[in-house]
């Protein structure tokens, strides 16, 4: 192991819940000799190995993860009171143990929001976001073959803005953090990234209406512009996209 790393002994308070209906509770586990160079999810792997070896009745902790490099949006976890943990602008898989100190107690909870029911332990059902995407988060008109990169001029400002919105990985931290259980940051990012670009503009009105309709149907809350979502978004998606979504939605409704 590289020089300069330290070992941490930690107390973990982990939410354990057998299934959606079961009553959950915090279980306390101790882990030893965790390197400050380990990632948070590696620490979870070590914990699980330990739980398997110890044959605890509740078994290893179920938690979501996939790419472990901040691009898939699978990892979740509410760590010490914050979505994706105590660092800013990163996903849980990008969180490292150097953010913690020896002897710390770490509380690990699942996303808790009406739209994301718990499946098991720290794993929640986030298919609601997929359903919103299926309602209109795509370009369905035929765009032909790959056009020449310069055939459609797009200003740098617009391209950057669309790219910032496209950075959304659909992790769900926005709705999980929001006191209103609102998915507006996610929906606005998805509507924005396409509404800003000529390829997406064609269906902008239809898309805004369809995605908002689906979001409402699925029972997500109404945005009161608290801005908590943008503070916890691992991709720093700005609430200015919410203003654009509102604009797109109003325009779409006035048109017909």
């Amino acid at each position: 192991m590289a020089e300069g790393h330290k070992s941490l002994n930690l107390t973990l308070r982990v939410w354990r819940q057998a299934n959606r209906q079961a009553k959950g509770e915090f279980k306390v586990y101790n882990v030893k000799d965790i390197s400050t160079e380990a990632s948070f999810l590696e620490m979870m792997d070590i914990l699980n190995e330990q739980l398997i070896n110890e044959q605890v009745p509740e078994g290893p902790v179920a938690f979501d993860h996939d790419c472990r490099e901040g691009i898939c949006g699978m990892c979740s976890l509410f760590i010490n009171g914050r979505a994706h943990g105590p660092d800013d602008d990163i996903t849980t898989c990008q969180l490292h143990m150097r953010k913690f100190n020896d002897g710390d107690t770490i509380t690990i909870e699942p996303w808790r929001s009406g739209g994301f029911p718990i499946i098991k332990d720290l794993m929640v059902d986030r298919t609601a976001y997929d359903k919103i995407m299926q309602a209109g988060g795509f370009v369905s008109v035929s765009t032909g073959g790959v056009p020449d990169a310069n055939a459609i001029p797009i200003s740098k400002v617009i391209a950057d803005e669309a790219m910032d919105a496209a950075a959304c990985i659909g992790c769900g931290a926005c709705a999980a953090t929001c006191k209103n259980g609102s998915a507006m940051l996610f929906v606005s990012a998805k509507v924005s990234q396409l509404a800003l670009l000529p390829q997406g503009k064609v269906e902008a009105a239809k898309r805004a209406k369809a995605m908002v309709k689906k979001m409402d149907e699925l029972g997500f809350g109404n945005c009161t512009n608290t801005g908590a979502c943008e503070l916890e978004c691992p991709k720093s998606v700005s609430i200015s996209h919410i203003a654009r979504l509102n604009r797109e939605f109003l325009k779409a409704n006035i048109k017909d």
Binding site: F26, G81, D88, R112, S113, G114, K179, G181, N222, A228
Partner: peptide
């Protein structure tokens, strides 16, 4: 509606930045 959307589950602690 917002209270319903939030659900009945509460975080043990939530410390927003």
């Amino acid at each position: 509606q917002n209270r319903k959307a939030r659900g009945t589950d509460r975080y043990d602690n939530q410390n927003l930045p």
